[in-house]
C-alpha cells in the first residue's frame, strides 16, 4: 500500500482509524440506550449491540495504540479522491432522478456526464454508448428477464 513511517513525525493513519472506530463504538453505545439490555438469562434487544460496540471500542483503542509502524496519514495517496467524489455525486444525482425520470433517462444522463464530462470523450461515441447501454440494458433486464425498473415520463 503505502510506505511505512520511519523516523518522520506526524499523525499516523492507524491513530486516525482507531479514533474513528472508537467514535463509531461510542455512538452505537449511546444510541443503544433506547433498547433494553435485559438480563443474562433473558438478553434484550440492546444486549448484542452493546457487546459488539464494546468490542469495537477495544479494537479501535488497540489499533490506535499500536499505530507506530503505520504510514503517516498525510502520506496516504488520495490522488483518485477528486475523481471519486465527482463520480459519487454524479451517481447520487442519478439515484435522485431514478424514480422520477425513470431508469433509461437517468442512466443515459449519468453515462453522458461520465463519458462526456469526466472522461472527455467525443460527443458522438458518448451519446451512442449512453443511449445504447441504457436502452439495451433496460430491454435485457426489464423486458426479457422481467426485472422491475422504474419508468419516467412518456413511458421511458
Amino acid at each position: 500500500m503505502q510506505q511505512t513511517g520511519g523516523a518522520s513525525r506526524g499523525l499516523r493513519s492507524d491513530v486516525v482509524a482507531g479514533v474513528v472506530l472508537m467514535l463509531i463504538a461510542l455512538l452505537a453505545g449511546w444510541q443503544n440506550r433506547a433498547y433494553p439490555v435485559g438480563t443474562l438469562a433473558e438478553p434484550g434487544p440492546g444486549y448484542m449491540p452493546l457487546m459488539i460496540a464494546g468490542a469495537l471500542g477495544v479494537f479501535g483503542l488497540l489499533i490506535a495504540l499500536r499505530a507506530g509502524t503505520s504510514p503517516l496519514f498525510n502520506a496516504v495517496d488520495w490522488s483518485e479522491g477528486r475523481r471519486g467524489i465527482v463520480m459519487l455525486i454524479a451517481c447520487g444525482v442519478a439515484v435522485l432522478a431514478l424514480e422520477r425520470i425513470g431508469y433509461r433517462l437517468s442512466m443515459t444522463a449519468l453515462l453522458v456526464f461520465m463519458l462526456g464530462v469526466v472522461e472527455r470523450k467525443r460527443p458522438v461515441p458518448t451519446l451512442l454508448v449512453a443511449f445504447g447501454f441504457a436502452f439495451l440494458s433496460y430491454y435485457l433486464f426489464a423486458s426479457l428477464l422481467k426485472v422491475q425498473l422504474p419508468h419516467g415520463p412518456w413511458g421511458l
Binding site: 439515484v95 431508469y103 453515462l111 461520465m114 454508448v129 440494458s137 433486464f141 425498473l149
Partner: peptide, 22 residues
C-alpha cells in the same frame, strides 16, 4: 474509460432491482 461508467450503471441497476429500493 468506456467500461467503468457502464459497470457503475450495472451496480446501480443490480442493487436497485433486488428490492426496488433507492
Amino acid at each position: 474509460s468506456y467500461l467503468y461508467p457502464a459497470i457503475l450503471c450495472f451496480c446501480i441497476l443490480g442493487v436497485y432491482s433486488v428490492s426496488n429500493s433507492v
